[in-house]
Structures are given as structure tokens and as C-alpha cells.
């Protein structure tokens, strides 16, 4: 029987009904406030360039100017911005997952000598806020040690920093630790190499956790602002988060709102479509910090 601190019988009493009604009203008002900026961006994007400045609470446009969305799409070169973001984020996520899965597999199953020290070094990056080494990171990316090359203004300058994710390594390791050793042992007896064991045994068993980490990484990297701002200065290659804000003030407010609304849609759609995975991932994320 599903119940909270109130039982189902209590909810049927007059007092309970009032409480439940008030709760619904409060939560609905809060939901409206939370959703308001999205709706406001959408309807303001449909207004004329002067109509947006009209005084009074006119949320609905007098006549929907759908062409604003087409204009904004072309003026802001949205397709290119989305493409840049997409390339940056997808490669980063794939790299991050590959690096993290391999490291976690090694720490959990192969258990090489000195792994405690390596884990401590990974843990260190979780405990030290990244602002501590942002400036030297920028300098390092501008002049890589040993090879003395700069990867600033190239997507490698984002892909490589995003590939380092200690949180993911620890989550994956604790997941791999729970795989019964009988399964991996039997693979070994059948003559599988470590690589084959990882690909054919461990990965299929941990598909769900890898999907969750992938979605969380995708959304976090898509949102990121400071690192792409520093690394990519070529306007043609900047992701949407950096470029759209920069060019927005050159255009009318109605076009800004239309562009912002379009830019908000992909993350919102991913969140809604993937909420089944997200729910598990976010509670897991609560231990991060």
C-alpha cells in the first residue's frame, strides 16, 4: 500500500482532503513558475519586434509571427551552432566512457600492483575544485608538455579535458565490483583475454550504468560554458552555449527569445525522453562532490 506520512484513510477525511488540495495547488503554482521562462521565451519569440516591448502583461502575441523562428534560425546560424556543440559533446562523451570503462575495469578486475595509489590520485581530482587548476590547465593546453604543441582553438582542447572523469571511474568500478567473479573466471577458462572479457562479458552486464553515465555526461558537457569559452575562440567553431549569448545582443529581443527557445529544446527533449535513466542517475549523482 502506497502511503506517505498520511495514510490513505486520513486523506479521505475533510482535513486530509483540504491538505491534499492545498498541496496540489502549491505544487501546480510552483510548476507554472518553473515552466514560465520556457513559455515566455516561446511566446515572446512569436511577437513583432516592437510588440515585445509593449507594457502590460501581454503574454500571448497579437498575431503569431512564425517567421521569427525561421529568421532567428538563419540569422544566428543555429544549424552550425548545434552541429559544433554536437561534435564537441558526442566525441567527449565517447572518449570519456572509453577511458573510464577501461580504467574501472582494470581497477576492479585486473587489480594491478599499486592501484590504491592510482585511485587516490583519481580521488584527488574529485576533492579539489576544478577552478584551482583552470588557469594552469589553459596554459597546459596552449603548450602541451613534451610535444610543445597547442591544442587551443581545436576540439581536442575540449575532448581531452572532458575525457577525465573520476566520478565516472568510481561509479563504474563499484558496479564492476559487483559482477560475480564466477562469470569472469569462466570466461578466462574458456580462453578469453582481458580485452575479450571486458567487451563480451563486463560491458553487456553493465549496459544500464553506461547509458546513465553517458546521458549525464552529455547533458553536463552540453551545458558547460567556461571551458569552451576559454579554449575555442574561433567564432565558426564555438558551441551554441558560448556563441549564441555572444551574438544575441546584436538582434531584436523577439529574435533572441526565438533563438533561445530553439536552443533550449534539445536538452529538454533529451531530459524528457531519458527520464527513466535520469532518475537513477541523479540520485547516484548525489554522492558527487
Amino acid at each position: 500500500m502506497d502511503r506517505g506520512f498520511l495514510s490513505s484513510i486520513e486523506l479521505k477525511t475533510p482535513k486530509g482532503r483540504i491538505y491534499y488540495g492545498v498541496t496540489v495547488v502549491i505544487l501546480t503554482i510552483l510548476a507554472l513558475i518553473v515552466l514560465f521562462p520556457f513559455v515566455y521565451a516561446f511566446t515572446s519569440g512569436l511577437k513583432g519586434s516592437l510588440e515585445v516591448f509593449n507594457s502590460g502583461l501581454n503574454l500571448i502575441p497579437r498575431k503569431a509571427q512564425w517567421h521569427n523562428y525561421r529568421d532567428a534560425w538563419e540569422d544566428f546560424k543555429m544549424l552550425k551552432l548545434f552541429r559544433n556543440s554536437f561534435i564537441i559533446v558526442t566525441v567527449s562523451v565517447l572518449l570519456r566512457l572509453t577511458v573510464s570503462v577501461m580504467a574501472a575495469y582494470s581497477l576492479s578486475q585486473l587489480k594491478p600492483f599499486g592501484r590504491q595509489l592510482v585511485m587516490l590520485a583519481f580521488l584527488l581530482t574529485l576533492m579539489i575544485p576544478s577552478i584551482a587548476y583552470l588557469v594552469p590547465l589553459f596554459v597546459t593546453l596552449g603548450n602541451l608538455p613534451i610535444v610543445h604543441k597547442s591544442i587551443l582553438d581545436s576540439y581536442w582542447g575540449l575532448w581531452i579535458p572532458y575525457a577525465a572523469d573520476a566520478f565516472g571511474i568510481f561509479v563504474l568500478k563499484s558496479f564492476f565490483d559487483r559482477i560475480p567473479p564466477d562469470i569472469t573466471d569462466s570466461a578466462k577458462i574458456d580462453g578469453a583475454s582481458s580485452f575479450q572479457t571486458l567487451v563480451y562479458i563486463v560491458l553487456p552486464l553493465s549496459r544500464s550504468i553506461i547509458i546513465i553515465l553517458g546521458i549525464l555526461s552529455f547533458m553536463n558537457i552540453w551545458k558547460d560554458y567556461l571551458l569552451p569559452l576559454l579554449v575555442i575562440s574561433d567564432p565558426e567553431r564555438q558551441p551554441i552555449t558560448v556563441r549564441l549569448f555572444y551574438v544575441a545582443k546584436d538582434y531584436g529581443v523577439n529574435l533572441q527569445m526565438a533563438a533561445a527557445f530553439m536552443a533550449l529544446l534539445p536538452p529538454l527533449l533529451i531530459a524528457i525522453l531519458m527520464q527513466r535513466y535520469l532518475k537513477a542517475g541523479l540520485t547516484m549523482g548525489s554522492i558527487k562532490g
Binding site: 521562462p37 547533458m219 549569448f245 529538454l268 531530459a271
Partner: peptide
């Protein structure tokens, strides 16, 4: 939903 929105886009709105 607002958690998935990039801050720089939300700031425009």
C-alpha cells in the same frame, strides 16, 4: 527541467 538548460541560454531569457 531547468537543470538541463545551459546557463548562458537561460540568461538570455
Amino acid at each position: 527541467l531547468p537543470s538541463v538548460v545551459p546557463v548562458s541560454i537561460a540568461v538570455i531569457v
